[in-house]
Design a protein around this nucleic acid. Sequence first.
RNA 1: GUGAUUGUAGCUCAGUUGGUUAGAGCGCCUGAUUGUGGUUCAGGAGGUCGUGGGUUCGAGCCCCAUCAUUCACCCCA
Length: 450
Amino acid sequence: MKPGIPKGTRDFSPAEMIRRNHVFDVIKVVFRKFGFEEIETPSMENLSTLEGKYGEEGDKLLFRILNSGPVIDQIREKQDSIRQSDITEKGLRYDLTVPFARYVVMHQNEITFPFRRYQIQPVWRADRPQKGRYREFYQCDADVIGSTSLFNEVELIRIIDEVFRTLIIGITIKLNNRKILAGIAEVIEAPDKLIDITVALDKLDKIGQDKVNEELISKGISQKAIDKIQPLLLLHGSNAEKLEALKKFLQGSQIGMKGIEEMELIFNILKKIDPDFKLPELDISLARGLNYYTGAIIEVKTHDKRSSFTSSICGGGRYDDLTGIFGLPNVSGVGISFGADRICDVLDEVNGYPDFSGGTTRILFVNFGMDEAMHCLRIVNQLRDDGIAAELYPDAAKMKKQMSYADAKKIPYVALIGMDEMTRGEIAIKNMKSGEQSIVSLNELLHILK
RNA sequence: GUGAUUGUAGCUCAGUUGGUUAGAGCGCCUGAUUGUGGUUCAGGAGGUCGUGGGUUCGAGCCCCAUCAUUCACCCCA
């Protein structure tokens, strides 16, 4: 049969893994530096955990896992009486936030709050793949749960800044607040249309003012409300200017004013701890489809001209009651999620990876036959004990073949120990880059490779 | 779920209005060089042209179906 892998999934070869690990390592180091602790959760969750948390669209994108057992046969016999739970009751995780909320509720008695956790694992979405969109991809999440302080939002923004500064990717952080969006819906007297309004606003950059209005009409929002909303679509200028205009607009809305207050506080704290910090950009068209956000909404995009990426490479926000669904109310959390795969794609486009040209193995021992190989293996072990990656070519193949292997694997040194070297207790080593060859002792070899 | 796109060697791709035996570059293997890779030279292997059907004297090329790919919409990391 012809081998293949499912749509939207990928194999990662050694060269790619080196690059991917670089991204994961940078993110991990920053997470730890900010005091976050790592957890993992299962790839699959009960459907009851996942369903209804990601909106209508999200439910459709859940990968459901077929129950094991004789169900399949039974389906063929009695199609009518089948319930969904007979067929499937588990699904692959769609993100890391909802499983985390579930984890927090289940482990509430062992957790010290506020809990700063990070989690780096794959998630699955039954989306149709396209540029930067995969059906299996890694999220790198950092969340603080059990604290309503806006210092947490500030910390997360600083994490974003540090990660992308380390990776050398130019970014724009966009910030919005669900309370401002709720305030807008309140002011135009269409509070039940909040989701429709935010989704339409999210497209402002992409499709423009007229099309947004068309979409609002099609969603059944009154002309009067749409007229009222127009000044918001024209919002521009600095954060301060936007905030002034919003304050005017949201005067009558308590929740809206609360959102503005939060936003201002975040900006002020950021400015105070570092006057040079490039502040996030206030963007009311930023909605984030996820239903559970209640406060700050964060999104990050590259602005590197060499990258054609327009989708977000990091996103997040505050959720006031995600644990409530699982029976633990009044625990607020806020988190961000780095899209590692998209970050890798951006780095590929801008050629932004450091030089990884040196291979993993530092020295290859040429195999001249049984006796020589045994002798080499003892030296190899001594090198390994000193933490040096070394290998012996497994077969007594032709020199050319063994040298080509070292070359292909970019191994910097090759050791040649034939009968002569063996009896004299010498090691002939060749520097593969310069081509120079020399005779050394084991101690000298250790010194060179250290 | 909707709309397009592309499918030819391991990889990237050429292939004329339908016309003999389907090509190139890179990679791979062998030798020049039995203890020396990366350079050079000589040679070699490798293809059910995505799959199934149809039109035709004749199909890589045209038609239909199907699968896969990539991209856009929806939505999202």
